[in-house]
């Protein structure tokens, strides 16, 4: 059975991050939904989920998540190497970098180390806004819109990585970059926040096709998709208005 794994939803639920899981639950009747509680062994350790979601969290929860996932890092990386679809949104993908430096506290926490990037968090340098961009890290390119909100900048050897999104308007992974996020095999990391999938239903469909699972096609799911696409169309036209601030 196809399984959607929500990794640590008790932590990764800031800024509407539950939206991805909510949308997929409605989009995927018949899929099994597994929630990993913090402090318990994640589902992926003993099983092969079809898709893993991890969302924005507090900076304390970033540290806790790294600590809790470290014992299972090899298994998680093996799944990613094998092509399991993983979507980490908001600041959740930062835990996959080499480390997070908490500038205000003068300390650095080792990350899970999947990506050759570094994260710097500064509570006095918060930034948030909109992003309009085009996906480049996939077989299919499409317009994506979304929102970001964070205290962090991610920097490093971008050239070594396949970016996920090229921002036309709005900030990338750091203030100087127009690149947001990373695609590594079927791992997608982005600073765009959690209702990314209902906000961009065609990207959600693309992600789901990568799982290789059969996707339910009912009257209800077709209608849901139609409403999501119409909402996306309207919002995109507003995002593209001349003079819109980002």
């Amino acid at each position: 059975m196809a399984v959607l794994e929500l990794l640590y939803p008790a932590a990764g639920n800031l800024y509407g991050e539950m939206g991805n899981g909510m949308y997929l639950t409605a989009r995927l009747p018949g899929w099994e939904i597994k929630r990993d509680e913090m402090g318990e062994e994640p589902f992926f350790v003993q099983h092969d989920p079809s898709l893993i979601l991890l969302g924005s969290m507090t900076e304390n929860h970033q540290e806790q998540s790294i600590r809790l996932l470290l014992p299972y890092r090899d298994r998680l990386f093996a799944l990613i190497e094998a092509g399991t679809v993983v979507l980490a949104t908001g600041n959740a993908w930062e835990i996959f970098t080499q480390g997070i430096t908490f500038k205000n506290e003068g300390r650095r926490v080792e990350g899970l180390g999947l990506l050759p990037l570094e994260t710097e968090t500064d509570y006095f340098a918060r930034n948030h806004g909109k992003v309009l961009g085009t996906t480049v890290g996939g077989e299919q390119t499409m317009k994506v819109i979304g929102y970001h909100a964070r205290f962090s900048q991610v920097k490093g050897e971008e050239v070594q990585l396949t970016p996920w999104l090229l921002s036309e308007k709005g900030e990338g992974m750091n203030r100087e970059s127009k690149v947001d996020g990373v695609r590594y095999r079927n791992f997608f990391g982005t600073h765009l926040l959690g209702p990314l999938l209902p906000t961009n239903p065609d990207f959600a469909e693309f992600l789901l096709t990568l799982t290789g699972e059969a996707l339910p096609e009912t009257e209800e799911t077709a209608r849901l998709l139609a409403v999501a696409r119409e909402a996306h169309r309207r919002r995109l036209s507003e995002f593209e208005k001349p003079g819109m601030k980002y």
């Binding site: 800024y15 509407g16 939206g19 909109k130 929102y147 909100a149 906000t199 919002r235 819109m244 601030k245």
Partner: peptide, 12 residues
């Protein structure tokens, strides 16, 4: 009037 409202909060 001035922006596109951020819709993330609907999911909170």
């Amino acid at each position: 009037q001035n922006d596109v409202e951020n819709t993330c909060w609907f999911y909170d």
